[in-house]
């Protein structure tokens, strides 16, 4: 079939066209109409070669068409903004799940450690060392949130549109607003974290009476804060001054 020949010709024609969704749609439209014209011509008795020449001869100068497509970026901007919003939501969900799992892992690790400290010996249930089991599970549990965070980081815009334009638009559009909100949220989350740490400190101290060592919880809290700070700098570089 000469269908392939027409498709190949269009591929060549669109070689220098800007890469975005509009161009792809235009190409699909041109191919569909060219194929229909080609089929009409061959049915009316034209030889395949003649029909092909007639079809490509009537296309004309497409350079101007491409210039229009490149100059008009509203479409890819809107498309990118929509994508960015969806990706942001997805990233937020993944990050919250990861933080939750991290906290669970920390509770398991600290819990197992404190349990050993309190009894000064390992606890066995059905021959299993509960303390080491807790520490092992806690460490294993860290793998999941790390993979989730790596995955969230890997979310990239689809290749089919020119996103550099949309990206700059997105950045200038709500950079300031986002920074302000980000700071507020970060501040209140830090406050909440320290409140929880203080509560945890008193509960564990009063239940274990191990006052001489429970102060170490605050060191852990400071370490977590540093870690979260570093993570936000890695994952939200745009939002920090």
């Amino acid at each position: 079939m000469d269908n392939l020949r027409i498709r190949k010709y269009m591929d060549q024609l669109f070689d220098n066209a800007p890469v975005n969704r509009r161009t792809l749609e235009l190409k699909e439209e041109l191919i569909a109409n060219a194929l229909e014209k080609y089929n009409d011509l061959t049915q009316r008795g034209y030889v395949e070669d003649e029909a092909f020449q007639l079809v490509i001869g009537s296309i004309g100068d497409v350079k101007q068409l491409f210039a229009d497509l490149g100059a008009d970026d509203d479409y890819s901007q809107a498309y990118y903004l929509q994508w960015a919003r969806e990706a942001q939501e997805k990233k937020a969900v993944l990050t919250s799940i990861s933080v939750g799992l991290f906290l669970l892992a920390i509770v398991m690790l600290v819990g197992s450690f404190l349990l050993y400290w309190y009894n000064m010996e390992f606890i066995y249930i059905h021959g299993l060392n509960l303390n080491l089991l807790g520490i092992g599970l806690g460490l294993l549990l860290c793998i999941l949130p790390v993979s989730l965070l790596v995955y969230a980081r890997k979310i990239q815009p689809p290749a089919e549109f020119d996103y550099t334009v949309g990206q700059t638009a997105l950045r200038s559009e709500n950079k300031k607003q986002r920074r302000k909100r980000f700071k507020q949220i970060k501040g209140s989350l830090e406050g909440l974290m320290w409140l929880l740490i203080v509560i945890f400190y008193f509960i564990s101290s009063f239940t274990t009476y191990a006052w001489h060592i429970t102060w170490i919880i605050f060191l852990g809290g400071a370490a977590i804060e540093c870690l979260l700070d570093a993570l936000t700098k890695i994952f939200f570089p745009l939002d920090i001054d």
Binding site: L26, E29, L30, N33, A34, S58, I59, G60, D61, V62, Q64, L65, D68, L69, D72
Partner: peptide, 17 residues
């Protein structure tokens, strides 16, 4: 007479806008 494809599709985009 017929229109060149390039002319036709440029006009489509303008009318759409």
């Amino acid at each position: 007479y017929e229109l060149k494809e390039a002319t036709l599709y440029t006009a489509f985009r303008r009318l759409e806008q």
